[in-house]
Amino acid sequence: MSDLKENLKAQIIEQLNLEDLTPADIQDDAPLFGDQGLGLDSIDALEFIVLLDSNYGIKISDPNEGKEIFQSVNTLADYISKHQ
């Protein structure tokens, strides 16, 4: 699981062009969206869908489903480990 999370952080940084961040800057339970966390937005949510599809073969067809899944690295990792 911790490997998965570390990989995820690197993939998030790449997919979303978060050049100024390193995986260590992203806390497992920190919110990814909104002003409290990384400040990601709805375009990033679509990029997350691409990330899940291309790296894990997981399909999400309704962007609304993403809201729960993309809350934090923890929720993402949970979802991936259950659906892979």
């Binding site: 997919q15 375009i43 679509l46 990029e47 869908i49 691409v50 599809d53 291309s54 399909k59």
Partner: peptide, 13 residues
């Protein structure tokens, strides 16, 4: 080049 259904939207936007 991307064969799947899911395409990165940022460049399009």
């Amino acid at each position: 080049t991307v064969s799947g259904d899911v395409l990165s939207p940022t460049a399009f936007i």
